[in-house]
């Protein structure tokens, strides 16, 4: 049972300059085939110049984020036949500098994470490096941040965010979510430092709860919730 589905793929070569174009490919599709399988089929059989980034093929590494039919998704996490479309448009993620075809430069995401100090902050760094005891957490303490540790940094939320699209300086859903993940961790001592970092024009206040980040997250992380909770913390001061 093989169906033929048309792939409309965004192509962009930096050396050509200007805007990219869409090119169409016909792909034979079997049950269980993912968008990534389709793209690899195109690369192997139809057009070897197509660039696509991927690694694990099982929604663990977060490399293959693309926009499929105008919604962000992991190419390896979306089955072609489940979309129930004859024409599938594959575009690179928004809000990132484009490198080639479907490959984007994720640098803004990581730069903003670094600016928000998304790591464990402890006063006693010596103890942090050479711990003398265990730091146990209760189930409740774990639940406060566990959901946000599921993030694989695929950057789909950053691409879906309407505010990042219009105001590129905004920290974006993923970095703010990660800041809250550490803020909510009972072992972290960065509390006031973190709320001060996000209390600026391009910080939490630019989130308007459009929820697109949580709608596209392939791991159910819910960055929108984390940002609202971080904002509550910042409002308390």
């Amino acid at each position: 049972m093989v169906e033929r589905v048309k792939f409309r793929v965004f192509r962009y070569r930096p050396e050509d300059g200007g805007r990219g174009i869409y090119r169409e490919y016909e792909v034979p599709v079997k049950k269980g085939m993912t968008i990534l399988d389709g793209l690899i089929y195109i690369k192997e059989n139809l057009d070897p110049t197509l660039s696509v980034r991927y690694s694990c093929r099982m929604a663990i590494c977060g490399s293959c984020g693309v926009r499929v039919n105008a919604i962000e998704t992991l190419a390896c996490h979306t089955q072609i036949l489940e979309l129930r479309r004859r024409l599938i448009t594959v575009e690179p993620m928004r809000n990132y500098p484009l490198i080639k075809d479907l490959v984007t430069d994720m640098a803004p995401l990581f730069r903003k994470q670094k600016a928000l100090m998304t790591w464990l902050i402890r006063q006693d760094t010596e103890e942090q490096e050479n711990p003398t005891r265990q730091y146990l957490q209760s189930e409740e303490e774990l639940e406060r941040y566990l959901q946000f540790t599921y993030c694989i940094q695929c950057g789909l939320c950053y691409s879906a965010c309407p505010v990042v699209s219009t105001f590129p300086d905004f920290y974006g859903p993923q970095p703010l979510m990660k800041a809250y993940r550490y803020y909510a961790d009972s072992r972290d001592e960065g509390g006031v430092v973190r709320t001060r970092l996000v209390d600026r024009f391009e910080g939490v206040w630019r989130c308007h709860f459009a929820g697109s980040c949580s709608a596209v997250c392939p791991k159910g992380v819910d960055p929108a919730l984390a940002i609202q909770l971080l904002r509550r913390a910042a409002l308390k001061g």
Partner: peptide, 11 residues
């Protein structure tokens, strides 16, 4: 103020 800043992409 916030809408215009977000529209033109800068304060």
């Amino acid at each position: 103020r916030s809408i215009i800043a977000e529209l033109i992409g800068a304060r």
